[in-house]
């Protein structure tokens, strides 16, 4: 199943608004934003479809960072 349109649109839009930081900082800002404001099912859906061709490269990079954040988070929680 391809990634839901609304998620593609939202993720790319967030990336566009952090673009001014340059790609690397932008990716980490996007990752932090997703972690802070997106419900886990939405994040999971995004992470499961990072190869969806419609995602901005910054989002793809952010997804990778987010994946790291999530695993770090799940380690430290509990």
């Amino acid at each position: 199943m391809p990634l839901r349109n609304d998620l593609v649109q939202m993720a790319n839009q967030i990336a566009a608004n952090f673009l001014h930081h340059g790609p690397e900082v932008a990716a980490s800002e996007v990752a932090a934003h997703l972690k802070r404001f997106w419900a886990p099912p939405m994040r999971a859906e995004l992470l499961a479809n990072l190869d969806d061709g419609r995602l901005d490269p910054i989002v793809v990079r952010a997804g990778e960072l987010l994946r790291e954040l999530e695993s770090a988070g799940s380690n430290s929680a509990s």
């Binding site: 839901r4 609304d6 998620l7 802070r36 404001f37 997106w38 419900a39 886990p40 099912p41 939405m42 929680a77």
Partner: peptide
């Protein structure tokens, strides 16, 4: 729950998706 939930538009999209 320590994780954020769905926002209104997310609820609508998830409803259409069936979750």
């Amino acid at each position: 729950d320590p994780e954020p939930g769905l926002r209104i538009p997310n609820m609508f999209d998830a409803a259409i998706e069936g979750t």
